[in-house]
Design a protein around this nucleic acid. Structure first.
Length: 427
RNA sequence: GGAGAGAUGGCCGAGUGGUCGAAGGCGCAGCACUGGAAAUGCUGUAUAGGGGCAACUCUAUCGAGGGUUCGAAUCCCUCUCUCUCCGCCA
């Protein structure tokens, strides 16, 4: 959520920021509304002050022995009633306007950071650095062919159970998924992250706090009867973990790592990535999440990104870091690095982690502050996947494959998986 | 799902119509005392918004919303949540 004060005092700054995202919006209306609201609030404040002093006067007089039904008191009473009526009228207008303003502001995305490269879409993203040697060979197979050959998953039966874009893992597939989750959690907790296992169902307030609502209700599965939603990412419960809190300065930075299943409706992605483990309605993810003092958020963004990269390095998976341009940023982000893993079977780099700095955008929606001296300041929040587990498995299968049908696993995974290779099951 | 109890500041807890943003305690911070600490004493310690260079000041907030009243933490209505017992259950 954007700062309403900033909208009043410097709407150009916001309009320019949003323009770089490709959003043309006339903030004048909003600015006028906000100013009008402030005006009404001031009027109401004055009236309420008058009303309060009348109330005190009545109390005072009665204590001094003036009869409650005397003319003097009656006069004050009617004065008080008039004020009360005016206040009620103002409140009605005030409520209406403030609701309008809030509804609008909640649909506005974050403004990009100054460093964020300006551009229209993903073509303007910038490759920052690369790691590892991407294998380029026409003989490499897609991960779903490998997975099927090895008996790791069954997509057809998954449709029987639920529908398309769900997957059921078997044998070494299931085991590998579990190994990856444990491996990632250990890697991060060893660096001092606090492990969290949050609820998979979250309420509307939580989704609003992190930015998924009100704008992207199409993207999440909903349980109508209970007004709960399936988490699209652990970012949602992790943000709300500290909603409406003032975090003591000495507790910052807070660094969480959470495994969670993630559920996404993938509305509007018909026909894209229909096979394999890339785009599913349900997938597993290990998420990194930081709460930091605003002064430290830039550095924190570099660090959280490196922490995510460390997973790819440990798994010996070639990747590149791409900085998203303004037009490609997610709703809550002010700056984002995507980690893209190399998939030799698909002959492409694929997003496996997204590392975002949200500044105070989510903190304002969630009212998460820290006490800095005498004043309370909104914290900054950051999130990064560390990593998307299904896509990691896809990358391991494609990168580790060999012509004899086996898949070599990275050394780091052996203690977790219990073997250094995936072999075709003898039937 | 059925029955009952409750929701007050960081925490505990008092307050049943007026000067209550709220006693008291704990905690926390500062100062004094000490070689240092403990103990003790003193002072301070909610959030949001508005005005003022500032000292400061105004408004709102005692789970949420509505009502009665000149005036509500306190009375009335609705909702939500929490706890206890019973039932069911991994």
């Amino acid at each position: 959520m954007l700062d309403q004060r900033l909208i009043r005092e410097n709407p150009k700054l916001i309009a320019d920021g949003l323009k770089n995202r490709g959003i043309e919006i006339d903030l004048e209306q909003l600015q006028l509304k906000s100013e009008r609201l402030k005006d009404i609030e001031q009027q109401r404040n004055k009236l309420q002050a008058q009303g309060n002093s009348i109330g005190k006067e009545v109390g005072q007089k009665i204590r001094e022995g003036v009869k409650p039904n005397s003319n003097e008191i009656d006069l004050l009473r009617s004065k008080g009633n008039k004020i009360k009526q005016k206040v009620a009228e103002l409140e009605e207008v005030e409520k209406e306007i403030s609701e309008e303003i809030k509804n609008t502001i909640l649909t506005l995305p974050n403004i990009p950071n100054k460093e964020c490269p300006i551009g229209k879409d993903e073509k303007n993203n910038i490759v920052i650095r690369s790691w590892g040697e991407p294998i380029k060979s026409k003989d490499y197979k897609d991960h779903w062919s490998i997975a099927e050959d090895l008996g790791l998953l069954d997509t057809q039966r998954s449709v029987r159970i639920s529908k398309s874009r769900f997957v059921t893992l078997f044998n070494e597939g299931a085991r590998l998924e579990r190994a990856l989750i444990n491996f990632m959690l250990d890697l991060h907790t060893n660096k001092g992250y606090t492990e969290v296992l949050p609820p998979a169902l979250v309420n509307t307030a939580s989704l609003t706090a992190s930015g998924q609502l009100p704008k992207f209700s199409d993207e999440s599965f909903r349980c109508i009867e209970d007004d709960l939603w399936l988490t699209p990412t652990a970012e949602v419960p992790l943000t709300s973990l500290h909603r409406e809190e003032i975090i003591p300065l000495k507790n910052l930075p807070i660094r969480y790592v959470a495994y969670s299943p993630c559920f996404r409706r993938e509305a509007g992605s018909y026909g894209r990535d229909t096979r394999g483990l890339i785009r599913l309605h349900q997938f597993n993810k290990v998420e990194l999440y930081w709460f930091v003092h605003p002064e430290n958020s830039r550095k924190a963004h570099e660090q959280i990104t490196k922490d995510a990269e460390d997973v790819l390095k440990a798994l010996e998976l070639p990747y590149r870091v791409v900085e998203l341009c303004t037009g490609d940023l997610g709703f809550s982000a002010s700056r984002t690095y995507d980690l893209e893993v190399w998939l030799p079977g698909a002959e492409t780099f694929r997003e496996i982690s997204s590392s975002s700095l949200c500044n105070d955008f989510q903190a304002r929606r969630s009212s998460i502050r820290t006490k800095d001296g005498k004043t309370n300041v909104l914290v900054h929040t950051l999130n990064a996947s560390g990593l998307a587990v299904g896509r990691t498995m896809a990358a391991l299968l494609e990168n580790g494959q060999s012509s004899d049908g086996t898949v070599a696993l990275p050394k780091a995974l052996v203690p977790y998986f219990g073997a250094s290779k995936l072999k075709p099951q003898s039937k």
